[in-house]
């Protein structure tokens, strides 16, 4: 066997791929332990390692899964093999996997946990202050664009899982959640990560800005409000005061 053949065979044995066609004794030597036992050492560590990684990044979902945790992670890594060099990225498709196999609050909670993970280590960026807006000619204001910091993510979840998050954290029983589209914003201020539920119009305005639309166009999202201008003003002010804005582009 050449190097490529050895690696292809052992890789598949360690991962426990169902389609593995090579027997351990074709790749690995024996001795006091059989080739199968030796491969098993690595395969067992692979299972433990992947479970530890998911447990670390999804502590709340892991806790709620209880006994189902181990088989769920095993099925996940089989269906979604790791394609990133860092083990810390293993969970990036776990919320998606849960959504496919068990749609509901658990998948939403997983997504929120993953957003926390990504936002916690997102690349740094000095936030802009509201002074950046103060200098803008009122006529050009509507045409200005905002860039948010890398450590900010917005997602429309199918349940408002904030109560579930709090309950798991407090060790209380999981509350019954009614389905309902909820935009959750996760961001980092200093080194701490926060999440908040947004009004749908504010979420639409942020998404418009993320797409590169102007403040004027984005703030059309507030048209249904009693005082759209005031609503837009309040929202924009809070984005700056919460250190969410990276730059104002004119």
């Amino acid at each position: 066997m050449n190097l490529a053949e050895i690696q292809a065979a052992l890789f598949s044995l360690v991962r426990g791929d169902r389609e593995t066609k090579v027997a351990p004794e074709e790749v690995v030597g024996g001795g006091s332990l059989s080739p199968a036992q030796r491969v098993h050492v690595y395969a067992g560590m692979y299972v433990a390692r992947t479970q530890d990684a998911i447990r670390e990044d999804f502590p709340k979902v892991s806790q709620l899964l209880g006994e189902a945790f181990a088989p769920t992670v095993a099925a996940y890594v089989e269906g979604y093999p790791s394609t990133h060099f860092s083990l810390s990225m293993l969970g990036r498709q776990f919320p998606q996997y849960l959504r496919e196999t068990a749609p509901g609050p658990l998948a939403d909670l997983a997504q929120l946990e993953w957003m926390h993970c990504e936002v916690f280590v997102a690349r740094d960026c000095e936030p802009a202050t509201a002074r950046a807006l103060a200098g803008i000619d009122p006529e050009r204001f509507a045409g200005a664009k905002l860039q948010f910091i890398p450590a900010l993510q917005l997602a429309w979840l199918t349940h408002d899982v904030r109560a579930l998050w709090r309950a798991v954290e407090a060790g209380e029983p999981a509350p019954e959640l009614k389905p309902g589209k909820t935009p959750l914003l996760v961001w980092r201020k200093e080194h701490e990560v926060f999440h908040v539920a947004l009004e749908p119009d504010e979420a639409l305005a942020i998404e418009a800005l993320q797409r590169g639309e102007s403040l004027g166009a984005a703030c059309e999202a507030f048209a249904e409000r009693a005082d759209p201008a005031a609503a837009a003003f309040t929202a924009i002010g809070s984005w700056f005061s919460e250190s969410m804005v990276a730059r104002v582009l004119l």
């Binding site: 292809a8 360690v14 991962r15 690595y42 560590m45 390692r49 060099f85 083990l87």
Partner: peptide, 16 residues
């Protein structure tokens, strides 16, 4: 080695 075909097992597998 610990990668193969764009996938990772996140292990330090020995070399032949």
């Amino acid at each position: 080695w610990g990668a193969h075909g764009g996938r990772y097992v996140h292990d330090l597998l020995p070399m032949p």
